[in-house]
Structure formats: C-alpha cells, structure tokens
Write a protein that binds this DNA or RNA. Structure first.
Lengths: 227, 227
DNA sequence: GATTTTACATACAGTCTGGACGGTATCCAT
DNA sequence: ATGGATACCGTCCAGACTGTATGTAAAATC
C-alpha cells in the first residue's frame, strides 16, 4: 500500500501514453472487427479510455486511422528489419527469410489490420497517400539489405529487387486468401515453391558476416495526427 | 405511341430481372463504395428499385451479399475461361495469358468488388464458406486447362499447377496495392518478370489446336439467396 | 372468376455512429 | 500561487442503417 504517489506525469508523457493506448486499440480493433467495424466507441472501450480523450487527440476518425496506419507500417518495418538481421545462416537464407516473413509478419492478426487499411485506402485518398509515402520509404530502406544478402545469377540487379517486391505481393495475396484455403502445410508448400523459384535467379552471398548498413532510423515521428 | 401493351411478364421473369438488377447494383456498389459503404438503401437507389423489392428477394443484407459473391465468382470464372480459350498463339502464350488476366480481370473495377468481399470474408463465416466452395470449384475446373496448354520443364506437374495458384495470389496482391504504386509500366514490368520466372519451369505445349476439355457448365444456380 | 400466392411499395421502430459541447482535473509558465 | 493552457470526461444530438410490419397490385391456381 501507500504506493509512492506516482509522480505526476508530464503533459507530453500523458499525451504519448494516451495516444499509444489509442493506437494499439485501433490496430487491435482493425484486426478483429475490420475497418467498418472499428467504431470510435468500440475503440475507446477497448482502450479503456473515455470518448473525450480520443476526440481531444484526434479531431476525427480519419486522423486516428491515419496515425494508426503510420504506426503499423513503422512497426512492420522494424519487425522486418530485425528479421533480416536475424538471418545468419547463409545456406538456406532465402527459405528461412520467406518462412519467417510469413510466420512472423504476414500471417499475424496485426497484418489483417494492414489488409483492412489497404482496402480502405482504395476509397480514402488521404489514407492512400499516407500508405504510399511509407511504402516507398520502406522499399528504399530495404533495397540495400537485399543486395547485401543476395546476389543475382543469370539475372539483373533490377530483377533481384523486383523479385522481392513480388514476394511482398505474393505474401499479401496469400494473407488475404489463406483463410479460404486449407491447412498450414498447403501454405508451406507455396512458400517453398516461391523460394525454389527465386533460387533460380539469386543466391545468398557467401561470407556475409556483417549486418547490412543500418539505415537511418525511421524518420521523425511527427506530422502524424495533424493534416 | 400506342406502344404494344407490353405483355405482362411472368412471375419468374420479374423475379429474375429484379434479382439481376439488384446483383449488378450490389457489385457496382461494392466496387465503388466498398463493403461497408454498400448500404441497402444505396444499392436499391442505384438499382432504381424500391426498398421493398430488395427485402422481398433477400431477407437480409447478408443474403444479398452472398448471392452477389456467388454471381461475381461465376462471372469471373466465365471470363477467365473465355480468356484461356482465346489464347491461340503458342509462342508467348504465357506472357499473353498473364497480361490478359491482369488487363481484363484483376485490374478492373469489378475485381475491386472481389477484394471487398475477400476482406469481408475474414469476419463473415458464411461469406467465407461461400467463397471457399466456389474457389475450390474454380481451381478444379482450371486444372485440366493448365495441363492442356502447358507442360513442366525440370519440374513436377504439381509445381506447374501450384505456379498458377501463385499467379492468382500475385495478381490479387498486385490488385490490392497497385493503386499505391506508380504507373502502368511498373505493373507491366512485374507481369513480365513473373512470366520469365514461370518460363523457367514450364513451356507452352506445341501444336495445341483444340481447346481444353470443356468443363461441365457452371453447376446449378440454385441454393443461392437462401441459407 | 374467385382465391391464393407472389412481387413490389411505403411507413415505422430501434439501434448505432460520429461529432459537438460544457465541464473538470492536471500541468506549466511566470 | 495564480492564471492560462492542456488533458480528459460524460452526455447529447442529428442522421443513417437495418429489419419489420402493413398495404396493394399483379400473376398463378383452381
């Protein structure tokens, strides 16, 4: 008892924590209830905060969604980055990368939130712009890592990079349809096939011991909720 | 003037036409306004019919959506079938197939309706079941055509078939993200890359002059609206 | 031609949503 | 310590949506 009176948080701290709770609840809600099902009331209920808190930090629903999208892409970016760094094995680097990407990113509930945002962005111009900017950024950041870990065989560097872009398309397509298909083994067979196909035009570089050049950290995290 | 009194339509005719109008309006609405934006009121407005007509034919929103999904998959199935039959050229059969599939199916607004249903089916069990059944059926129907037109090189027949399944995933992924990317040329380069990759493990069969065995027509169109 | 069934139309009820508003607590600059 | 800014709260409101209930005309059945 007599818990230390918990030094009052500073304004900035309070704001940050509140926004964090809201964003987490929003992404959770997107994943579980979909875009349309994510009403402001349901989100604040999930976050355990009041309706007023939300409206204070985000003037309208779109602002909240934009910030959530921002947060999600940033999160996924980090996750994929760590994943790349964790791949040490140089023999089946490709296979393990694909498997891990599916297992740890694209098959997770959190990625369903991304699917929702993606589809919603077909109609929401602002959302599309936000995603567009971030995606471009992500691609630019990963390109060096690709060349760091892999090299083309009988193919151009452009093809090498394009192949990984295709991987993301493939995984997105898989993620949005996997629930209609059967089992994990079936998915695995497709992941394997992709790896084998990719191995026809690329291989892991030998003797890579250093992680790829750390890209600059994710750019400023400002310019979010405001538009 | 004195227009012929337009022989009153039979009940079945009236029902069929009304349902057709509703389904068309629904798919259009899905494509333009998304799943959540497709309210019953907006759909009947678009179809130019009364609210009562809709409720008469479809007891609730889900029934309408299920039938629309049914209709869409059937439509796409036919379209892809004709597309396969129209590919005569045996040299770059693969390239032309991929291009045509993108151009005539996956990049169309109608396919956006499918994306919407796909995402919605993540949460709607009934919708998922409906799509699942139809997809399985489609795959089974196309499998013979694949072997009719293509043969594997240094690969198994299973890989051949799996490769076309991957094509569908790739195209779905592309369709849901293309609006975030740049231009048509960029898309084209990815279609080309896919064709080149596929060509590494398959080729068009020589001297194929006959169309593939016509699968039985699409099964009965009953068991739709009711659940 | 009478009656039953089907197709369509209109009005209404209940629920929910997003945003607005007025008020309170907490923090910060001076 | 005090006045102003910032964070947070609960409620209300106008609109929209779905499903239902009720009414009418056309077709099918006998």
């Amino acid at each position: 008892m007599t818990a230390s009176p918990r030094p009052r948080r500073t304004q900035a701290e309070r704001s940050d924590q509140m926004r964090q709770r809201l964003l987490e609840a929003t992404l959770q809600s997107l994943a579980e209830d979909g875009y349309a099902g994510s009403t402001l009331s349901s989100i604040v209920r999930r976050a355990g905060v009041s309706r007023g808190a939300q409206v204070h930090h985000y003037p309208n629903k779109q602002a909240l969604m934009l910030d959530a999208a921002e947060d999600l892409v940033r999160h996924t970016y980090r996750q994929l980055g760590e994943l790349l760094l964790s791949i040490k094995d140089e023999d089946d680097r490709l296979t393990r990368l694909v498997d891990a990407a599916w297992e740890q990113v694209f098959s997770t509930p959190l990625f369903h939130a991304y699917s929702e945002l993606l589809i919603a962005s077909l109609r929401d111009q602002d959302l599309a712009e936000a995603l567009k900017g971030r995606l471009k950024l992500v691609q630019g950041v990963y390109a060096p890592a690709v060349e760091h870990y892999f090299e083309p065989i009988n193919a151009s560097k452009a093809d090498l990079h394009a192949m990984f872009v295709q991987l993301s398309f493939f995984l997105v397509g898989l993620a949005t349809q996997a629930h209609l298909m059967n089992d994990r083994a079936w998915v695995q067979s497709h992941l394997d096939l992709w790896s084998r196909q990719a191995a026809l035009i690329m291989r892991a570089r030998k003797g890579v011991r250093q992680p790829p050049p750390r890209p600059d950290a994710w750019p400023r995290k400002d310019e979010a909720a405001a538009r």
